Amino acid sequence: MTAIITIADKFRNIFQRFSRFGTWFLEHQRRNLIAIFSLFILIAFSTTVMVNITPRPSNLPSTELNTPVSFGTLNKTASLTKSVFNKNNGVLELHYTISDGAVSDQDLVDISKIKFTAMTDHGGNQVTGRVVPTSNNTVVVQFKNLSQNFNAVTLTAHDKSINTATVEAPSSVSAESSSTKKTATDTNTASGKFIINRDKVSKSNTLTFANQKELEFSESEAKIAAQQKLISKNTNAIVEYQKAIDQQQSSIKKYQKILAQSDDSDTQTSIDNARDAITQIRTQISDAQKNIQRAKTNITQYQKTKKHVEDGKSLLPKATDL
């Protein structure tokens, strides 16, 4: 019974405290409402400051590396192959490979017709940028004095080549009127937009704002290394192909022994299939050998380009400011 009275007293005390608080709140209602309203205003202001001032990556997803992005009206694509940032000096380096979908030889593009425009989000007031051709199908977009807390950089590729398919030569006034409507509705220019968020770039404390000669030289070395890797892979493939031929020939010998003891048509079919497989593998070996020869030719060309760059005889367009 005593325990029940004790619990009742506790509930009575709690109720009395709430009653006193309610009375106090009503007596000071105006001041309390102003305080609550001021608190909400402070929270809203703080949130606005955090959203608009505090650096963060953009809400848009970053463009993935080595993903072709179409631009212009002539089927060209650009791929971001590398992105590196040095927060100590604000240097951002973006490497692009340009491909021409209209021709089979995609290693040769009129790089002088490829332009870029850029926007930075919280990049700072001192940031500058430029586009540096580094080979017949590669460019490097450089930024310096970029804020270490930049949110994102947006780049857009443009093709200044003239697409004659979009040029209208009307034969009459009525034809000119209809062609204008057609051009307005049918012309399809791909965006060529790249989003590079701060949290997706590689970090380097040694990256500097390299000049065009250094970038061209580095690109030639990278191309040579890539071709050497290609040679190695094709050489290994040939070894595996030869092992596969040996296996097929071993199988043929076994099938022939079986066939010598019986006239099983299935055995003859297996022999024929093995011989067809060997023919296909030899074709693959031939293709791999051609790949190796092509890579060696490319290496020779890249070595010549490298020598021209060293001698200051580059044939590429000069770097241009963004």
Score class of each variant (00 low, 15 high):
Lys243Pro: 10
Lys182Tyr: 01
Leu207Gly: 04
Asn197Pro: 14
Phe209Leu: 03
Leu155Phe: 06
Gln249Pro: 11
Ala244Lys: 09
Leu155Met: 03
Ser178Pro: 02
Thr187Asp: 13
Val239Asn: 01
Asn234Gln: 01
Gly192Thr: 09
Ser191Asp: 15
Asn163Val: 02
Ser191Pro: 15
Thr166Leu: 10
Gln249Trp: 13
Thr189Gly: 03
Lys182Ala: 03
Ala226Pro: 07
Gln228Ser: 15
Val239Gln: 02
Asn197Trp: 10
Phe217Cys: 08
Ser250Gln: 11
Asn151Trp: 06
Asn236Tyr: 02
Ala152Ser: 15
Asp246Val: 11
Ser177Thr: 15
Val139Ile: 07
Thr164Gln: 05
Val139Pro: 00
Asp159Cys: 14
Asp186Glu: 12
Val139Glu: 09
Ala225Tyr: 10
Ser218His: 13
His158Met: 14
Ile245His: 05
Val139Arg: 01
Ser174Ile: 14
Glu214Leu: 11
Val153Trp: 04
Glu214Tyr: 14
Phe209Arg: 01
Pro170Ser: 02
Lys233Phe: 04
Ala237Ser: 05
Asn163Trp: 04
Lys223Glu: 11
Lys233Ser: 14
Thr166Val: 14
Leu155Gln: 03
Gln227Arg: 05
Val141Cys: 12
Gln142Gly: 09
Leu215Pro: 08
Ala222Ser: 08
Glu176Pro: 00
Gly192Arg: 08
Ser191Ala: 15
Lys223Cys: 07
Thr235Cys: 00
Ile231Pro: 08
Phe150Thr: 06
Ser220Trp: 03
Ser202Cys: 03
Leu207His: 01
Gln212Glu: 11
Tyr241Arg: 01
Pro170Gly: 03
Thr189Lys: 11
Ser172Met: 10
Asp159Thr: 07
Glu221Ser: 08
Tyr241Asp: 14
Asp186His: 09
Ser250Pro: 08
Asp199Gly: 04
Ser135His: 06
Thr138Ser: 15
Lys223Gly: 06
Gln248Ala: 12
Gly192Ile: 10
Lys160Pro: 01
Leu215Val: 11
Ile231Gly: 05
Leu215Tyr: 12
His158Thr: 15
Ile245Asn: 05
Gln247Cys: 00
